[in-house]
């Protein structure tokens, strides 16, 4: 594992695209909520106080939701780039020619997204705890830890987006096409499909589409507030339960990685 990880590190440590995107993530993940605090001074009507964004335990949700967007965008792009740039420069095929077997090549990418997910989760935990401690009056450990497995959900969310990006990278291979499809699918296509499904067949199956399952690991906290209203309207809520989202994500991650491996292993390089 260490050999493959050090190989990936050696390949990309001087790559400006990977460095800039990762740096943006590292800077924005902990600070974006603080920037928002300065921009949006007034509290939304349905919230008792804007402090809810920064206090334990709700700070876990708001930081997680920001991380949701940042991960899907920056880290998703990084992973797609790390695969498709190797296709474009033919270093993927040269790695195999030089002696790396396909399994090790794939494992190198898998370990990389695993490490990215771990570090992203650590950034999430550290920045959330610091922001929460600074803004919460009378906090204690019980309150800090009242996160409903948020770090685990965040880790799974990172793995979910990045394994989907890995799948897109390995199957589409061309960076422009892969990034376009990834963006369109994550941002629009699945949302459109889900709403078409609700229109044709209003059933809670619409919650189990892959990006929705991954997004529901760290959903928009405002949706949680409105979910009861939706439940009354449709007999089912918009959001999956935390456990449902975790189990569903784990299944999708396995599926994405399995299909990506199958595609990479069987095709000519």
């Amino acid at each position: 594992m260490f050999r493959l990880l050090s190989l990936e590190y050696k390949k990309f440590r001087k790559n400006s695209v990977v460095s800039i995107l990762t740096l943006f993530y590292i800077i924005l993940a902990p600070t974006l909520i603080l920037v928002a605090k300065e921009i949006f001074k007034s509290t939304p009507d349905f919230l008792p106080s804007s402090n809810v964004f920064f206090e334990f335990p709700t700070v876990w949700d708001y930081m997680g939701y920001i991380g949701n967007w940042l991960t899907s965008f920056f880290l998703g792009f990084v992973v797609i780039y790390m695969v498709t740039s190797e296709v474009a420069s033919k270093t993927m095929r040269q790695s195999i020619i030089n002696g790396l077997n396909r399994k090790d090549y794939f494992l190198g990418k898998l370990y990389t997204i695993l490490i990215f997910s771990v570090f992203a989760t650590i950034i999430y935990i550290i920045s959330t705890v610091i922001i929460g401690i600074v803004h919460t009056d009378g906090y204690d450990m019980e309150l800090i830890m009242d996160s409903n497995w948020a770090p685990l959900r965040y880790f799974l969310m990172c793995m979910g987006y990045m394994s989907f990006a890995l799948l897109i990278g390995f199957t589409m291979r061309k960076s422009g096409l892969a990034i376009f499809f990834y963006l369109v699918y994550v941002m629009m296509l699945e949302v459109v499909i889900r709403y078409l499904q609700v229109w044709a067949w209003p059933h809670e199956a619409m919650k189990w589409w892959p990006m929705n399952v991954i997004e529901d690991l760290m959903p928009n906290p405002f949706f949680r507030l409105g979910d009861q209203f939706i439940k009354n309207e449709y007999d089912f809520g918009l959001l999956l339960s935390d456990n449902g989202a975790m189990i569903g994500s784990a299944i999708y991650i396995a599926l994405f990685l399995g299909i990506a491996w199958n595609s990479f292993n069987k095709r000519d390089i």
């Binding site: 050696k10 390949k11 001087k14 790559n15 420069s89 002696g99």
Partner: peptide, 20 residues
Amino acid sequence: NFYPYLDAVDNLDIVARIKN
């Protein structure tokens, strides 16, 4: 086929790492 943003030594180092 090499990493265009790396120099000769880094590129050869990657090959050496692959070959153990």
